[in-house]
Nucleic acid binder design. Structure first.
Lengths: 343, 343
DNA sequence: TTGTATGCGTTATCAG
DNA sequence: CTGATAACGCATACAA
């Protein structure tokens, strides 16, 4: 692979007639080394083009400075923003990220877990697939006390931090808003009720109905994979309902957009006939017509917080047991898709 | 960090009363080891929960099984698709990806380059910032013969593979299409003319005009950062033009959408007054009204091809010098934003 | 403040 | 087919 020989601390030591130990110490700015020799050493290091060998160091220190990330898919606006936030913090702290996608497959999630375990990552940041039931594949990390943080799609795992927004509250506000606009027959599009985010959103929706004395209807709950196509399919079901629902609260903007477009093609007017609220504040929400009312979900910030938290823990500057759940702020953003014109 | 002691090949060797050399060979399926002992060893390895230590191996073999990726930003649909494709191939081939963002800053690109160099990545996949002029920061890789592949935003660097679509042709077809719809005053929204993709698109646009005997007008070229906001700003400039342009070819869907929305708010009809063609086939192109004609740009596939190519080269199964440029297929997708109604 | 010596877990080179 | 042993480059306990 390489041509020129790599420069090592031995080369530096020989050239300066000092020991490798001193060089090693100087390079990591150990206060025990005198300023003078430190300067000599770092100057020579630059001159000779020395670069430290991470593998030798990792082998020696038993740390990797690497963080594993497992996510369902990277190519959504929300998730790529999360990753961008993580990358931002990790890079500035000298950590590398190994990112792996489960593609919503439990099997792949398990496989990725094993790969990352074998890579001896220092910590793990995870957002679960729709269907993950057992958390047994994380046991090896727990046993080795490798810190594990769940974000967005979390799970109840003892001693693991979770980073979330208040999905219950967000859904409650969204639904209450629709009711305040005079809507009563509110459909809810969501995903399987295995993941906290969808469970909590459904609960928030139910509570909002209950608080306004609107009976909950099971047939108003449509479960799918929240893709744009799923939204279009849901539109067909909604159209068949008698009477026609007057609002839809969707657990994801993309799915909401798919549903809106399909309904519009059927001649249904938004928001006059059916009002919409989405979730995530995906850029597409300001492109669709009418613009989509949604919940702002700070992905970039969530990525930063997750990475920061994990690294603080790895550096010993925070105890993961002390902070078990971190809730980020989220808010309802009102746009035309849900606002009824004054009569 | 850890509780239980890690199992090493020494432990396996001791337990079986054989040498570590044999264990090491057996574990990597060296044909020189007898089937019998191989089986014994791998069984015990599983039983004792052995996992190989990448760092010791990397230290010994001077390879890292890690690929560095430098991109402008991860959180765009195109780029996150590229990353998804790379991850897909890399994971299945036992490679890890270190992804770093330059955020369109040359300084950050240089810094990332250094970081990845110090990480001793086996190879590098790069898409340049808008403004990168000098390629000197890649010299260390060239000197060490670390393979370097550019994709999308490429550069002329000797001995480096480039992965691209035919931007010239795509732009030529887009522009010719607009002309075929009766458009003559075609504005082009693009980015700084430092990167191949934007240079080639402009050239394709010019050639299409020339072939139809339409004079090129410098004032029809609007240069920006291709963000949605830049599109909105461009809309203001376009509105001031006398006479009003009758088409816009934009080097990026997001920017096109920003421009379309702004123009529509000014009361300009699309495509009646101004037709639009974008670039990338971002999902937003099927949400904006009217749906945006665009160039399909296969991001996921590009990521796969880039990773596959690099890994093949690392495995010695392909020579990077033999394939200098890879062109992926792209095509014009017609939608309502550019199609004139028959008179 | 600096030096010596050892081990981290593998792989590769010999020699059997 | 198998074994002994020397690197790989660094960090640290201990000694000076």
């Amino acid at each position: 692979m390489s041509n020129e020989k790599e420069v090592t601390i031995y080369d530096l030591a020989r050239k300066l007639n000092i020991s490798v130990a001193t060089v090693s110490r100087a390079l990591k700015d150990d206060p025990v080394v005198s300023k003078k020799t430190k300067k000599k050493i770092s100057d020579l290091a630059v001159e000779m083009g020395y670069r430290s060998n991470h593998f030798a160091r990792n082998l020696r220190t038993q740390r990797t400075n690497t963080i594993g990330v497992i996510i369902p898919r990277i190519n959504s606006y929300f998730m790529s923003s999360v990753i961008a936030g993580m990358e931002n913090i990790a890079t500035s702290e000298g950590y590398n990220l190994i990112i792996s996608q489960s593609s919503e497959s439990v099997e792949k999630e398990v496989a990725n877990t094993i790969t990352l375990f074998n890579n001896r990552v220092d910590g793990l940041l995870v957002s679960l697939t729709y269907d993950t039931d057992s958390l047994a594949h994380f046991d090896p990390f727990i046993r080795k006390k490798v810190p594990l943080i769940f974000f967005d799609r979390t799970a109840d795992q003892k001693d693991c931090t979770c980073i979330l927004i208040n999905n219950w509250k967000a859904a409650y506000e969204a639904t209450t808003h629709l009711i305040s606009q005079g809507r009563r027959r509110i459909v809810h599009l969501t995903a399987t009720q295995k993941r906290n985010v969808y469970i909590d959103r459904l609960e928030g929706y139910k509570q909002a109905l209950a608080d306004q004395r609107i009976p909950f209807r099971e047939d108003y709950i449509i479960v799918g994979n929240l893709s744009q196509e799923a939204g279009a399919e849901a539109a067909s079901r909604i159209r068949e309902m008698q009477p026609l629902p007057d609002a839809v609260f969707v657990a994801n903007d993309n799915c909401a957009v798919g549903c809106m477009i399909a309904l519009k093609q059927m001649g249904i007017r938004i928001p006059e006939d059916i009002a919409f609220v989405g979730f995530n504040n995906d850029p597409v929400s300001t492109v669709v017509e009418p613009n989509l009312t949604t919940i702002n979900y700070p992905g970039y910030e969530m990525g930063q917080v997750a990475a920061r938290n994990l690294i603080d823990h790895l550096n010993g500057s925070s105890n993961i047991h002390s902070t078990n759940t971190i809730i980020l702020r989220s808010e309802l953003i009102l746009r035309e898709s849900s606002v009824s014109r004054q009569p």
